[in-house]
Design a protein around this nucleic acid. Structure first.
Lengths: 222, 222
DNA sequence: CATAAACCATAGAAAGTTTGAGGTTTTTAT
DNA sequence: ATAAAAACCTCAAACTTTCTATGGTTTATG
């Protein structure tokens, strides 16, 4: 009997117990599934580092948000994913996220290229089981809402450079146009130009920023 | 009892009978599944056009390649998909393709944005059933190899414009550099520049075109 | 080994971006 | 209702990138 080691990292202890309960009862070939857990960035990081020189985890489940919202988030699941890929490239990584916002999904798909991405509202015992099996045998596994975001992006002809993306992102979180220059290395008038250009790309000429943001959301950019 | 109408278009009659056999035996809520078939571009087009003013198909399964390879392909499944989206936007479209080459998948995902994409070697009765159900209730459905191609593309930071893509595509089908200018509206020296640039993007500086093509394939561009 | 194709370097032309300075219109707060 | 702030617009000069033509070298192929 082989052992399948899973590490689940989530800051909500009860959520994680739920995962552990489901996962350890999965019947999967002749695997014995063992779930290890951690509920802070630090303890998760430590377990991953320890695993490098002992047994390696087969699958690492990472919550994107490892701190209560509103709190400072010095480090999040994405950073931990990047680190894990470096330390233990043989471990499969899957993200679990409460929000299905495209910006985050796109970013994680590029920075970590995880073997799975599960939007939490898509998860139930059945899909979780399917996800684990797919991740182990034939990755990737993307849950339904994640696929929705991916579909939007793939069906898209518009390509934006980093600065355009940053402008859209900052506008979407409510940054004022006049403050944008603090975050983006461009003059105010260039930022205005780019905003105009973006609005014409997304077909929201002469409309306000909200219209632009909504159009960009619909197309999967934020 | 509701009726779920499926139209399958594939130039191999036997393949299509197989699909029909499997599909009509699927147990799916209280649907009665009826499969209509066509095995040429023209007859498929006709059935789609007729459906506009009578019953509309719920799902249209399209083979990408509707003519024997090597023959001239004046029209293919992709064109038919584009047409269908215009004529009957309420019908779901799924592609079936023997090749899982990224160039084709990427192109179809942009031109048609189908509700499903199945690579034929991924299809068996079980996945076909799962695919149909997902396409009807909660699209999209991408089969395993299709997901592989999509993953490559999404995890990629490199973005290419139309001309770069065309250069890569033509090189991949064996077009000589000196003939490229017939297909791409650029001067020979610009094409050389872009090829140099592409090679540096893909980390194949000072290597030959084959190395470039292989690297671009690995990253999901062709 | 001769020829065609591929590749490289350079420099001027063309196209696209950025920037600052001037302004008008819209939004926001009181 | 009104003053102030922010957003928006236009234009032209500086700057950057890309394109193109030319002339040359290297590499592949019959």
């Amino acid at each position: 009997m082989k052992t399948l080691r899973i590490l689940a990292i989530d800051d909500h202890e009860m959520t994680m117990l739920g995962y552990k309960f489901i996962l350890e009862r999965i019947v999967f070939d002749d695997y014995n599934i063992i779930v290890d857990t951690a509920n802070t960035y630090e303890s998760g990081k430590q377990k991953i580092e320890e695993s490098v020189h002992s047994f390696k985890y087969d699958v690492i489940l990472l919550d994107v948000q490892l701190y209560p919202p509103n709190e400072e988030q010095p480090q999040n699941g994405e950073d931990l994913g990047v680190l894990t890929r470096k330390l233990v490239p043989e471990s499969k990584i899957a993200f679990m996220s409460s929000f299905s916002d495209n910006f985050r999904i796109n970013s994680i798909l590029q920075s970590v290229d995880p073997d799975g991405y599960l939007v939490k509202t898509d998860i139930d015992p059945k899909t979780l089981e399917e996800a684990i099996k797919t991740i182990v045998t034939n990755p990737p596994y993307y849950s339904s809402k994640a696929l929705g975001a991916i579909r939007k992006k793939m069906s898209n002809k518009i390509t934006l450079d980093e600065k355009d993306k940053q402008i859209l992102y900052h506008l979407s979180i409510g940054t004022k146009t006049k403050d944008l220059e603090q975050y983006i290395k461009l003059s105010p008038s260039s930022i205005e130009n780019r905003k105009r250009h973006l609005k014409s790309l997304f077909g929201t000429e002469n409309k306000n920023d909200l219209a632009l943001i909504l159009a960009a959301k619909k197309r999967g950019f934020i």
